[in-house]
Design a protein around this nucleic acid. Structure first.
Length: 434
RNA sequence: GUGGGCGUAGCUCAGUUGGUUAGAGCGUCGGGUUGUGGCCCCGGAGGUCGAGGGUUCAAGUCCCUCCGCUCACCCCA
């Protein structure tokens, strides 16, 4: 094999790109209804943005970033997630001065140097939302809501499971962490090797362990829930009330932990069946200390990310390329000037028009028309040129008739519009039946 | 970073105990009388059998090394 894309990086080809467009358009439409505006930030940032934002001791920063030195000696990093960069832009552009609350979304690629597997790539894409400037539980609920809504819209009605938890705040979290560390050290002999390591690096993560031995050992471990301060309890309670009111089903997972340091209070994951080991389609949480940590004012925030590839794996619907409205079969070079004129007018009116390149037999051209699923074909050869009448062929009924040159574009436009109206009516009727 | 599975045409795969010019289906291009598509029939193009080395008279087939893909661990969207 010759030159190849690098490991974990994928070409996204037609017709699959159709599914991407569909998902992105749906997400954008959904965000607009929630009052989010699009922000686009660079995919490359100073490494510092992520080191400080995500946390020095996270796996992402320690071993997964694409980091390199720029020609002038700066350390740069391909963004492994969107939030840190958006917060940097938020601070740099003083967006908090425009209005107290900013609701931003972005869609784009992220980069993490991990071993690829099902639902995990080195370049992957996220649909991201950040709500900055409010610590109202309603803002948590709205971020979960918009994630839920997008996933519903793309047709993942079943098989989704929303898990929610609170990680506490800087007031109540340290107490839990300390007690947990002590507990783990006292029970280290019952833990697997991985957990013994986690115990030191990120004690909370032992709760994620799937091994039976560890689960048993952790039955009596201190749970964050019992350490929540009154404010954190109240906050989560109100978020859950909103979710209930919105009829978004959830389960509380007291062991739900996130891999990024900046999260506090509300965290959530939306998991799906059918994704293999990487079963989280969307996740997010509250990060009240982050803006300040990156050098901005003390402003709270909450956000979420949907994994595009993972959502697409769940969509599974195969989207076809759009069918062509009209294919122009040209048998004589002199006919091309007429054809170009018709195609220009039709394309300007939104019709999909194609013609063949190079000299081809009529048979070959009609075959090509068939392959692009042309609804109509127009045939122009020597005799048509003489009579100044083209042949318009209905590819479904096989009917064909002659149309004067100066009526070809209009005739096609009329025919296509009629069809569209019929289709639209059918669609409406079908929807009514459902 | 660690383990398991897999690498033969664009795709899905066959290839007998090692034995002639490596095959099929689909796709693609063309033909089936002058200028009429899908179905059918016929034909063409397309492969360093993942790469390198070894064993052998002979390797797609056996052995070794490497590379890639994939799933899982880890971690996460």
């Amino acid at each position: 094999m010759g030159i190849r894309a690098i490991r974990g990086f994928k070409d996204i080809l037609p017709p699959e790109t159709r599914s991407w467009q569909e998902l992105e358009e749906l997400a954008r439409a959904c965000f607009e209804t929630f009052g989010f505006s699009e922000i686009r930030t660079p995919i490359l940032e100073k490494t510092e943005v992520f080191n400080r934002g995500i946390g020095e001791h996270t796996d992402i920063v320690e071993k997964e970033m694409y980091t390199f030195t720029d020609r002038n000696g700066d350390s740069l990093t391909l963004r492994p997630e969107a939030t840190a960069g958006i917060i940097r832009a938020y601070i740099e552009n003083k967006l908090y001065n425009r209005s107290s609350v900013q609701k931003l979304y972005t869609i784009g690629p992220m980069f993490r140097h991990e071993r690829p597997q099902k639902g995990r790539l080195r370049q992957f894409h996220q649909i991201n939302a950040e709500l900055l400037g409010s610590d109202d539980p309603l803002s948590d609920a709205e971020v979960i809501w918009v994630a839920w809504e997008i996933l519903q819209e793309i047709g993942l009605k079943g098989g989704l499971r929303l898990e929610v938890n609170s990680l506490g705040c800087p007031k109540c979290r340290p107490g839990h962490r300390k007690d947990l560390s002590v507990f783990l050290e006292n029970n280290a002999q019952d833990l697997c090797e991985d957990c013994k390591r986690r115990m030191k690096t990120n004690p909370l993560r032992v709760f994620d362990c799937k091994k039976e031995e560890c689960r048993r050992a952790l039955l009596l471990a201190p749970v964050i829930k019992h350490y929540w301060c009154p404010e954190c309890s109240e906050h989560l309670g109100r978020v859950l009330d909103y979710l209930e009111f919105l009829e978004i089903p959830f389960v509380i997972n007291p062991h739900l932990v996130r891999g990024l340091d900046y999260y506090q209070r509300t965290t959530f994951e939306i998991k799906a069946t059918g994704l293999g080991a990487q079963d989280t389609v969307a996740a997010g949480g509250r990060y009240d200390g982050l803006v300040e940590l990156l050098g901005g004012p003390k402003i709270p925030g909450v956000g979420m990310a949907i994994g595009v590839e993972r959502a697409l794996l769940l969509m599974e619907s195969e989207v076809e390329e759009e069918a062509t409205d009209c294919y122009f079969a040209v048998l004589d070079r002199d006919a091309m000037e007429y054809v170009l004129k018709w195609m220009k007018e039709l394309r300007q009116n939104g019709l999909i028009c194609e013609t063949s390149y190079g000299k081809k037999s009529l048979k070959a051209q009609l075959r090509a028309a068939d392959r692009v699923r042309a609804r109509f074909s127009v045939i122009v050869g020597e005799s048509e040129l003489d009579e100044e009448e083209a042949i318009l062929r209905d590819m479904e009924t096989h009917e064909q008739w002659q149309v004067p040159f100066d009526e070809v574009a209009q005739e096609l436009l009329k025919k296509t519009l009629e069809e569209e109206e019929v289709e639209a009516k059918k669609a409406v009727q079908e929807e009514e039946r459902e």
